[in-house]
Structure formats: structure tokens, C-alpha cells
Simulated scan of single mutants.
Amino acid sequence: MEDQQREKYLKKARKLQMYNVIYDTIEVAVSLTAGFISGSAALIGWGLDSIIEIISASTLGWRLHGEIKDISDKRVKKREKITLYVIATSFLIVSIFITYDSVTKFFNKETPDWSTMGLTILLVSLVVNPILIWYKRKYGKKLDSKELIADSKDTFVCLYQTVAVLGGLLAVQYLDWWWADPVAAFLIVPYALKEGWEAFKNGREISV
């Protein structure tokens, strides 16, 4: 790829990460507020996952900014390595918390209250996240960027969890399945651990 064309995609990818951070900040504020008010493990877990997405997107934006500023290849690779490790660690932290919170609420048989605020942000995210995933994968392929591809998977985890949390919220409300909320939260853990391990392995493969 020509340098000028690569720089164009780098700038677009970095701008995308900025949009990602802005939206996820809104998502965190709304989902955690709704989660704590309603007592929903799934909404709280989903909001915490969005915090990890903010960290991941910010770190990736930092890596992209470094290449745009034409820092040395060694420093770019170092930033790539750090970015993948941040993504891997993010998946692990989210998995640990969600497991603890969902298991605790399952055994305590805690039933969350209905949350219109939570429902609204979930529905908005069903529209926003697929758009973010598509563009991250697009620029990841254009730039041959493992960390952008890994970040798109992080966003896919959020989308998957959005569907699970939404299903749990509706099941509790309309089917009286008290266990649906913690189970919906827990469904994300195996996938998150798998993708976290993959990001970690990709990070180890980069030599600086």
C-alpha cells in the first residue's frame, strides 16, 4: 500500500476509535446507572465491558496516532504489542467480574427490576455496534492490523452481550424467569476468554 493511501486509512481508523470512545462513554454512564438502579447483573456487566472497550479503543488510537506521526517502526511495533496486551487484559478483567457478579446473583436468586433506560441503550447499541465492527474490520484488513481486528472482536463481544442482556431483561419482565439476568451475563464469559487469549498470543508474536 502506498504511504499516502496508508496514512489516509490510518487517520480514518483513528477517527473511528475516537467515535468509539465517545459512544462507549455514553453507554457506560447510561448502562451502569440503569444497572445499579434496577439491580441487573447483566446491565452492570455490560456497562463494565464498555469501560474496557474505552480503554482498548483509546490505547489503539494511541498506537495509530504514533504511526500517523511517523515514529520509528520499532516504536510502532512496541505500541502494537502493548495494545494487544491491553485488549487481552481487558477481556480477562471483564470475564472475572461478570463471572463473580452473575454467579453471586444467581445463587442469591436476585431478581432485577425493569429498566426502560437500560432497554433504550441496549436497542441503540444494537444499531451502533455493528457499524463500528464493520469499519474496524474494514480498516484492520486495509492496514493489515491485528490489533484493529482484535478490537473489532472486542466490539463483537459487546454486541453479543447486548443481545444476551436484552433477552435476559425481556425474559425477566415477561416470562418471570428470575435466573435469566445472571445467565445472560454469564453467557459472554467463554467467548471473551477465547478472544482475550488470542489477542495475548498475537501480542507475544510481535518482536520489538
Results as ranks from 00 to 15, higher is better:
123 L>E: 12
198 E>V: 13
112 P>Q: 11
127 V>Y: 11
85 Y>H: 06
191 Y>K: 13
149 I>A: 08
36 F>H: 12
107 F>Q: 02
123 L>W: 11
123 L>G: 10
153 K>M: 14
195 E>C: 04
112 P>E: 06
57 A>H: 01
138 K>A: 10
66 G>Y: 01
134 W>G: 02
46 W>N: 03
126 L>G: 15
15 K>S: 07
98 I>A: 05
36 F>T: 08
79 R>S: 10
154 D>Y: 01
125 S>H: 06
56 S>V: 09
191 Y>N: 07
122 L>K: 05
7 E>L: 13
180 A>Q: 06
167 G>P: 04
87 I>E: 02
69 K>T: 03
82 I>V: 08
107 F>Y: 09
18 M>C: 02
60 L>D: 00
29 A>D: 06
83 T>L: 09
127 V>P: 04
133 I>Q: 00
56 S>Q: 03
112 P>W: 07
120 T>C: 08
137 R>Y: 07
123 L>K: 13
205 E>F: 05
196 G>K: 03
111 T>Y: 06
5 Q>D: 14
124 V>H: 07
188 I>M: 07
163 V>G: 05
111 T>K: 12
130 P>A: 03
72 S>C: 05
83 T>K: 07
176 D>T: 14
145 S>A: 15
96 I>A: 11
153 K>I: 09
135 Y>M: 14
146 K>A: 12
165 V>L: 11
160 Y>I: 12
94 V>N: 02
187 L>Y: 00
172 V>E: 07
52 I>H: 01
116 T>L: 11
14 R>W: 02
197 W>K: 11
207 S>I: 12
156 F>R: 12
63 R>Q: 05
7 E>C: 10
40 S>I: 06
156 F>M: 14
163 V>F: 14
205 E>N: 14
121 I>E: 15
173 Q>R: 15
79 R>Y: 06
85 Y>P: 00
109 K>M: 08
122 L>G: 05
18 M>P: 00
76 V>N: 04
144 D>K: 11
4 Q>H: 15
159 L>V: 10
179 W>A: 14
167 G>K: 05
165 V>N: 08
105 K>W: 00
81 K>D: 01
177 W>Q: 14
89 T>A: 08
106 F>T: 04
175 L>M: 15
76 V>C: 05
71 I>W: 04
50 S>K: 05
116 T>G: 09
148 L>N: 06
12 K>A: 13
43 L>W: 06
107 F>E: 09
161 Q>G: 15
113 D>G: 02
97 F>Q: 02
135 Y>G: 04
15 K>L: 15
86 V>L: 10
203 G>K: 04
137 R>D: 00
46 W>H: 09
5 Q>V: 13
77 K>H: 12
106 F>A: 08
54 I>E: 00
176 D>A: 15
13 A>D: 09
82 I>F: 04
36 F>W: 14
189 V>W: 02
56 S>K: 02
65 H>C: 02
94 V>P: 00
44 I>Q: 09
25 T>N: 08
108 N>R: 10
67 E>T: 00
169 L>P: 02
75 R>V: 03
167 G>L: 13
200 F>G: 03
28 V>N: 07
174 Y>L: 12
143 L>T: 11
